[in-house]
Design a binder for these strands. Structure first.
Lengths: 332, 332
DNA sequence: CTGTTAGCGCTTTCAG
DNA sequence: CTGAAAGCGCTAACAG
């Protein structure tokens, strides 16, 4: 069942190298023999062994992709783009999930190396491994975030925060909230823009979720506990959520307490996943397709040119997609 | 930067085969030399070339996975399980997405073969390729569906339909709806159970969505057009949706017309994705983890034993997870 | 316990 | 235009 070139060669009455030649582009092979080879290949359904090709050519046409989670639908759209654009360029995807675990991340990277991947695309678990990844001879690019040492294509999160802040201010809001895990650029950009406009983000209006709340039971529990803590009285009339799931969960929790969105509370999420689309939640859109396109440009460039120039940091621009949840009705 | 065993051997003053021995389990190697080798490996960060190993051992420790879409969050949970369980067994995942396209599916399979995958796990696009896949020397198992010719682990969809039907009848409903693309086992099981209980599923209560509605804009459009067609009057008080997204979209569309769930309309979805969990939608739960576990059992078994026994069809049992959307309030 | 040797299946000079 | 031959990095007899 599993043929080799040698056998094809015998069947077609040519040498193995001729078989190889016709498979790799036909250059300089007599039409007759070429046809004969092609016929045999077709008849027996021969498929060349890529392990051997990889060994010989020392490149595999595989790209290792390591993401941090699959919980957020955002990552699915990312995987989808990655897979389809990779294929467009003639590459396959070896997919790993680090689950936010730096050790697992490093193991994945080692695995990629051992498989002779031609490049890696990584959503890092943090700063843990980026520097040593940058020292490897296999080119990598960070996606979704910006990190030193490596090419990276992310989003201008601070600008996202600013856009949201300005939208809220423009709508006439006076008290603001934030829903997220640890403070990040989104948060800082949001707060700063608020300050610049003479507004303030009160500390008690930071609905802080545990970093580990990457599953809905925990997330909802954290939200409930916040709400109970403030006696079910939400002191803000608008809030920026660090992702769409958080936005949605907060909206649900509020609704259970008779607080309606957008009537009593305006919410803007982040990622603009289909969750936001289905539920009519305003959200900061990340241009995933463009992000992936840019990532491949960088990666393919590094793969082709040995030249190791300085890493570049690309920050794409976020845009606000307005839907019902920030559609001021009677709030302030 | 990229070392080979030969170089390690030289640095550690042993032969290449000794290096190979210590890497592959240390059996029968003098402790001294072993330690020396290990030290060198550690110092230079040597990682063996799996392409060479694959070529030599003629197995790759890769499993090819080909799914049909990423739109439904159900598939994400599937990918996640597949990846983590594969890793647990020492395998990596090569991920492809056929996008419901049989031609792409076959290309993926060929690609898998060329990469010497040890096995394949496939969500088929239909019956197009299963038979010829079954003839390949690489073992495969179908997941999520049941198909002839190949080992397959799916769900008892007809039973799911029956469970839903009985739940609705038990709640006292008298008129029933169905939301989905083409009629399938879910639908038939549902209708049959209804009939057996003296009830009827009227043809005009079949909210038929285009097969291609695998993105929310199209799906919503189809729902809207159905609703407009029936003059915004929903003739049923309960409906079974073929997946959670459809359920949610229908609930939203109904809500826009002043029809509340569960007050005026009960809905049960399918897949029990986090969408259902977050939104409080009752749904038929698919035991994804168990499904994947079973799939690996079958696959690993085929991979280890050359014996080609008859393909087995496994149908796991669905369960209904009741949430708010089927929580009868005043409907019938 | 360890080194030597012969390939795994393919690509790629090098001659002819 | 085409065959012979070397070798990619590794494993696994086979001798010692």
């Amino acid at each position: 069942m599993k043929m080799t070139m040698k056998e094809i060669a015998k069947l077609a009455n040519v040498s193995q190298s001729t078989v190889s030649r016709v498979i790799n582009g036909n250059t300089g092979v007599n039409e007759e023999s070429a046809k004969r080879v092609l016929d045999v290949i077709d008849k027996v359904g021969f498929i060349p062994n890529k392990a051997a090709q990889t060994l010989k050519r020392s490149h595999s046409h595989i790209i290792g992709v390591c993401i941090t989670e699959t919980y957020n639908p955002y990552f699915i759209e990312l995987i989808d783009q990655l897979e389809s654009q990779a294929r467009k360029h003639g590459y396959n995807i070896l997919l790993h999930n680090s689950n936010h675990n730096p050790i697992q991340e490093w193991e994945s990277v080692q695995n990629f190396i051992s498989r002779q991947v031609d490049g890696m695309i990584i959503v890092p678990t943090g700063d843990y491994n980026v520097e040593r990844i940058s020292k490897l001879s296999t080119p990598s690019v960070v996606i979704t975030q910006n990190r030193k040492f490596l090419d990276s294509v992310g989003l201008d999160h601070a600008l996202a925060g600013k856009i949201v802040a300005e939208k809220f201010i423009h709508s006439g809001h006076k008290s603001f909230g934030f829903i997220g895990t640890e403070p990040d650029d989104k948060y800082f950009g949001y707060r700063m823009a608020l300050n610049e406009n003479g507004m303030k983000l009160k500390e008690e209006n930071y609905v802080q979720l545990e970093e580990s709340s990457t599953n809905n039971i925990l997330m909802r529990r954290d939200i409930e506990s916040y709400l109970n803590q403030v006696g079910n009285i939400i002191d803000f009339t608008c809030a920026f959520a660090a992702n769409d799931i958080m936005a949605l969960e907060f909206i649900n929790a509020a609704k259970d307490r008779g607080i309606s969105v957008p009537e009593d509370l305006n919410i803007i999420g982040f990622d603009d996943t289909y969750l936001a689309k289905i539920m009519g939640i305003s959200s900061i859109h990340q241009p995933i397709e463009e992000m992936v396109t840019t990532t491949f440009e960088l990666l393919l460039n590094r793969m082709e040119n040995e030249v190791s120039s300085k890493p570049v940091q690309i920050k794409l621009k976020p845009t606000l997609i307005e839907r019902n949840s920030s559609n001021l009705v009677r709030v302030p």
